[in-house]
Write a protein that binds this DNA or RNA. Structure first.
Lengths: 133, 133
DNA sequence: TTACTAAATTATAATCACTATAATTTTTAA
DNA sequence: TTAAAAATTATAGTGATTATAATTTAGTAA
């Protein structure tokens, strides 16, 4: 029952929000743009406007339900916040997105911020790769 | 004489290009958006259109003269390519951008790509920090 | 359950960053 | 110096996203 998840996040359980949350849950591991979500809604014959999709995704982000990424592509993509932090590798030829974790890099980042007298709040690390010839 | 730099890069030495290159050289360490560059041109009473600024910056990028960054801000910023690679730290309160280098992280990134059977082409690492209370 | 009120959604227009187009101007090479 | 190729200008167009005003819905109180 996702209505509960929304309430917990401090959001009213409206139909558009439930549909969009469901779509995100059904696309585990994928990274959808607002347009992608909107297309799925259309396929499901749901009457939800594109503006609503944008607004709801932004609210989900503010509520900590989803994470927004900007992979140099000119538009944002979203994924459910699984709670386990990870970074991304983007394949330059196929567009494939691979997730990875590396504790060593995480630690080094904190150290660097500290060395400059700052506190690391968050970070964005994206590796752009190609297959070996 | 920057006309020479442009020629070396395979670009004709036109007035807009020389003015824009000069502006980038005069703002060492800063990270200017196309709009920022355009504003400086206006202040200098130069008759260069915004579309030209965008086109020229893109050409400079293609020619390897400048580097384009997308700091999650919805627009690109540019800096002269100094030749020495560095990553960036963005201060969430002041907007200040600090450059840093860390060879260890660079190596780890290559390793990670390799482990997945890929070749690292480039990467984007941005630390978002705040001052310690 | 019903009625109310605040919040959310809809449809659409507007905005922002950026790109394409066609006409005009500038570079550069002969 | 002149002509072809390339670049620039002014402007319209595009794609992603956001704002607006009217309408609908969710959650609460009677």
């Amino acid at each position: 029952m996702e209505a509960t998840d929304l309430k917990k996040a401090g959001l009213k359980a409206t139909l558009p929000r439930m549909r969009i949350l469901q779509i995100l849950e059904d696309s585990e591991g994928k990274h959808l743009s607002a347009e992608d979500v909107y297309k799925v809604l259309l396929e499901q014959d749901e009457e939800v406007g594109l503006a609503t999709v944008y607004r709801v995704l932004t609210q989900f982000e503010a509520a900590g339900l989803v994470i927004r990424h900007n992979f140099d592509s000119g538009h944002s993509v979203f994924e459910l916040d699984s709670g386990t932090h990870h970074d991304h590798m983007v394949h330059l030829d196929t567009g494939e997105i691979i997730e990875f974790q590396n504790e060593e890099i995480e630690e080094l980042q904190k150290k660097i911020a500290k060395k400059h007298g700052f506190e690391l709040i968050e970070h964005s690390l994206v590796l752009y790769v190609k297959s070996k010839k």
